[in-house]
Amino acid sequence: MNRTNLLIKASPWLFTIGLFVVWEAAVYIFKIPVFFLPPPTAIAQAFVDYSGPLARNSWITLQTTLIGFALAVGFGMLLGLLVGWSRAMYAGLYPLMIGFNAIPKVALVPILVLWFGIGFVPAVLTAFLISFFPIVVNVATGLATIEPELEDVLKALGASKLDIMRKVGIPRTLPYFFGSLKVAITLAFVGSVISESVASNYGIGNLMLQAQAQFQVPLIFAGLVVLAIEGIAMYAAMAILERRMTGWAQRSGFAQA
């Protein structure tokens, strides 16, 4: 029992290390050229050689992403509450939102550049635009699925719509909301990196684009690794937040098993 537990704890690390070992071995065995697929050791070397630019640009990307994400959380929650509040709102806004969501956000970057110039602002806005949708949908779903019996109990006490929203709607929406944050933060990274690589002079996206132009393939991969690490860290932060805030909704052993 104890041994399996230990194995489960260690397995993410074992698998990650295993992946790098296989990768390294494959590059040597098949004599893959560095400019095609650099081995992990070359990527590590790139981390050492370019630690300054990598640190600076990853910090910028993280900031951009978090600001866009924060905007998405605020706006997404408001819009979700609005859409969940009234059927007319839902009927009117939903098709618009679905249409908007279907637009590839990279197609919006030129417009954002036209309005705000290249750099920080379009990247933040792209992160925002790409990540608010799942928040809206989840908040609205949480509100729309209030048990009618519970609503009846409250209405028969003379509760107003606002009462029902405050006492039941919002609390029961929180698990949906925090669940959506995990999706949204990952999307926000996608948005900021897209915009950085198309229209910015900063950030990991831009760094990777420049590295590609100069054929510094290990540096491109180092950029990818940085993005993966930031993505995992933020996802984990959201998952911890979710567990903290909505422990009552995580009773089932299903996800833990």
């Binding site: 048990e147 019996e149 519970l150 009846d152 109990v153 209405k155 028969a156 006490l157 003379g158 006492k167 039941v168 609390p171 029961r172 929180l174 909505t246 009552w248 909704a249």
Partner: peptide, 17 residues
């Protein structure tokens, strides 16, 4: 809605939080 009624149903409908 009448405001003076208490209601209970087959399902307990308690708030889990």
């Amino acid at each position: 809605p009448v405001k003076i009624a208490g209601m209970a149903f087959q399902a307990p409908t308690l708030l889990p939080w």
